[in-house]
């Protein structure tokens, strides 16, 4: 790396200054294309959504300042609270279970020798499917009349339309779809545990569950916390599976924040109100991300 960052430009020779300017120009040329897209399509909309949330804009972006109206309406609207609670319920059903299932499967896969890659591929494969393929496959497997699950169990539950089962069913599909990601991370974590640790503990007479509790679990904790937080952030943004499997139904039992924002913004043309929902979602995710950054920093040390 070229060093000597100029602190006092005044004492530099002309050649040095040209050189510095040239270097600066090169750096800018390299960084600019990405930074341009980044500012235009990520940062600008993020600032604009805050501004829009104080207007009654439509989808074309025309609207006038309405102050806090959208927010007062939002916080007194029962549908918003339904959507928030449903989102939290979905998080409850996915984040910890998905992590635990991932850990369990990773521990099982680690035991295999020749078939390890095959088993890992089996658990990870759903992960590479487009969401609409996942939802149409499960819509078919869980079809209430002709689906395989109901045929085998004799059940008549309509999984994705039942007020009680819809959310757990979506959560189940989500776990099936995404757990492979967690399995991979856990396997990486498990492989990083030095075998000497186990050997030492075994010499001390530890075995069975005690080995897991005293060695595996503590050593895995950085990975586990990372997975938990990645899940948490991802699941706050849940939209695709819900839209495709239940469209928020039955009777708003699976309506989540992002779907609510979509409905209001794109289907009802309430751009300002929808932006207010977006701002709330963003604040929540920023808080969770800040938490993640803090935890990751600690884990890194």
């Amino acid at each position: 790396m070229l060093n000597t960052a100029p602190s006092k430009t005044g004492v530099l020779s002309p050649e040095k200054r040209t050189q510095l300017r040239k270097r600066w120009l090169t750096a800018m040329l390299m960084a600019a294309p990405f930074i341009l897209f980044y500012l235009l399509f990520l940062i600008y909309p993020t600032l604009r959504v805050i501004q829009l949330s104080f207007t009654d804009a439509d989808l074309a972006g025309n609207g006038v300042w309405v102050g806090l109206t959208n927010y007062t309406k939002l916080f007194t609207e029962p549908t918003f609270w339904t959507a928030l609670l449903n989102t939290l319920y979905f998080i409850l059903l996915t984040v910890v279970p998905n992590t635990l299932v991932g850990l369990g499967l990773a521990l099982l896969v680690m035991r295999l020798k020749r078939l390890r890659n095959l088993a890992m591929a089996a658990f990870f494969l759903p992960n590479v499917l487009p969401v609409s393929v996942v939802t149409s496959v499960w819509n078919w497997v869980l079809d209430s009349n002709f689906g395989l699950v109901n045929y085998l169990t004799g059940s008549t539950v309509t999984w994705f339309q039942d007020p009680v089962w819809a959310m757990p069913a979506v959560a189940f599909v989500t776990i099936w779809w995404t757990v492979g990601f967690n399995v991979l991370l856990f396997i990486a974590g498990l492989q990083n545990i030095p075998p000497e640790l186990y050997e030492a503990a075994a010499l001390d007479g530890a075995s069975g569950f005690r080995l897991f509790r005293s060695i595996t679990w503590p050593s895995l904790w950085p990975v586990t916390s990372l997975i938990l937080l990645l899940q948490l952030i991802a699941q706050f943004k849940i939209f695709d599976q819900i839209y495709l499997l239940t469209t928020g139904g039955p009777f708003d039992k699976t309506l989540v924040l992002l779907l609510y924002a979509y409905r209001e913004g794109f289907q009802q043309q309430h751009g300002g109100y929808s932006s207010a929902i977006g701002v709330v979602l963003m604040v929540i995710i920023l808080v969770v991300s800040a938490l993640q950054a803090k935890l990751l920093n600690r884990g890194g040390r």
Partner: peptide
């Protein structure tokens, strides 16, 4: 900083901007 920003939260302004 952008690492933490969910683009999903600003779909409306993004759509409006892309439309403009």
């Amino acid at each position: 900083a952008g690492f933490m920003i969910p683009f999903q939260a600003s779909l409306i302004p993004l759509f409006i901007f892309i439309n403009k």
